[in-house]
């Protein structure tokens, strides 16, 4: 599939901190691409560079094959951008906030009115269209920002944590809209919600220290763990003494840890779990849990706090 967005050796520094370092990435046309990473990993910076809000220090970025630095007008018109923070104008009503933004993209008044009414109906803020943003809750304001990003029906959507602060009902509506209206759009979004990322993205990039550490579909990413599973044994009273030392000696047992009354470890093969179970069978076990590695485990492993 052709790439809608291409980043080549992108670099960005802020003061003396490296935000993005030699970052290259291709985002397929009409796909949902998620970027996950720690706070300050550079997720928002990528979106801001693509939206034309900040200048990159090095590298090139293309949107539909057009360089964003030299063909700004052509690239900006196909983009819809939703920032992470609430940036609505408190001196204008919600309706005016949306109207002005749509007009900046050259959308006719009539079409804008129809789209504003449509989305306000979906997100249930129709009665608040003539209110000022300062009177509304952050959750509703986020849905209005989402509406603003999609109001001109852009080809590419850059969404910075689009569902943060929203209630579960509106979160679902956002993804439903992206599923229907956004079917023929390229969606690049950042998120801290791993369940959402697993559910709604075709491809995921894990960003760490300004570089893409892993990139691919969820199956491909989880596939690299080769069936690695996370095991948990919960004890009634406490975890037996010296258990970490004894199971640490076992082959293919990764990262044994004690969290309160729970013994946690990772392994590719179930037989090693039974080996551990034999070690602790005499203790008072209250529960056993096993789960295949998820994106969150992979992410935590990559950023160095858990499985490597």
């Amino acid at each position: 599939m052709e790439a809608s967005i291409t980043l080549k050796s992108l670099a960005k520094k802020k003061n003396n901190d490296i935000i993005l370092a030699d970052l290259s990435l291709g985002i397929e046309s009409k796909s949902n691409h998620a970027i996950v990473g720690q706070n300050g990993a550079g997720k928002s910076t990528i979106l801001k560079i693509l939206a034309g809000l900040i200048e990159k220090d090095a590298g090139t970025a293309y949107i539909n094959g057009k360089d964003i630095s030299t063909r700004q007008a052509e690239t900006k018109i196909v983009i819809g951008y939703m920032p992470q923070h609430i940036d609505l104008d408190n001196e204008m009503t919600i309706f005016e906030n949306l109207m002005i933004f749509g007009r900046l993209y050259g959308v006719s008044n009539e079409l804008l009115k129809n789209r504003i009414l449509k989305f306000s109906d979906i997100f249930d803020y129709k009665n608040q269209l003539l209110e000022y943003p300062k009177k509304l809750t952050p959750g509703i304001l986020r849905t209005i920002q989402f509406t603003r990003s999609i109001i001109h029906n852009p080809e590419i959507l850059l969404l910075d944590e689009p569902t943060s602060k929203m209630d579960p009902k509106n979160k679902i509506k956002v993804w439903e809209i992206l599923d229907t209206e956004g079917k023929d759009k390229t969606v690049l979004f950042t998120s801290q919600d791993f369940d959402e990322v697993e559910k709604f993205s075709d491809r995921i990039s894990i960003l760490h220290h300004g570089q893409i550490r892993m990139d691919g579909s969820l199956d491909k990413l989880v596939g690299v763990t080769k069936g690695l599973s996370k095991y948990q044994i919960r004890f009634k009273d406490s975890v037996p003494d010296g258990i970490i030392d004894s199971i640490g000696q076992m082959p293919k047992i990764l990262k044994p840890e004690i969290n309160g009354k729970i013994l946690e470890f990772y392994s590719n093969e179930r037989k090693f779990f039974f080996e551990v179970l034999k070690e602790v069978i005499m203790s008072d076990i209250s529960d056993i849990d096993m789960d295949f590695c998820k994106l969150i485990d992979l992410y935590l492993g990559l950023i160095g706090s858990k499985v490597e």
């Binding site: 939206a51 034309g52 809000l53 900006k76 104008d89 933004f101 900046l104």
Partner: peptide, 15 residues
């Protein structure tokens, strides 16, 4: 102002 409406207006095709 990084968090302002005006700032976000800069991502539109207006020069």
């Amino acid at each position: 102002d990084e968090n302002s409406y005006s700032r976000t207006m800069l991502c539109t095709p207006i020069s």
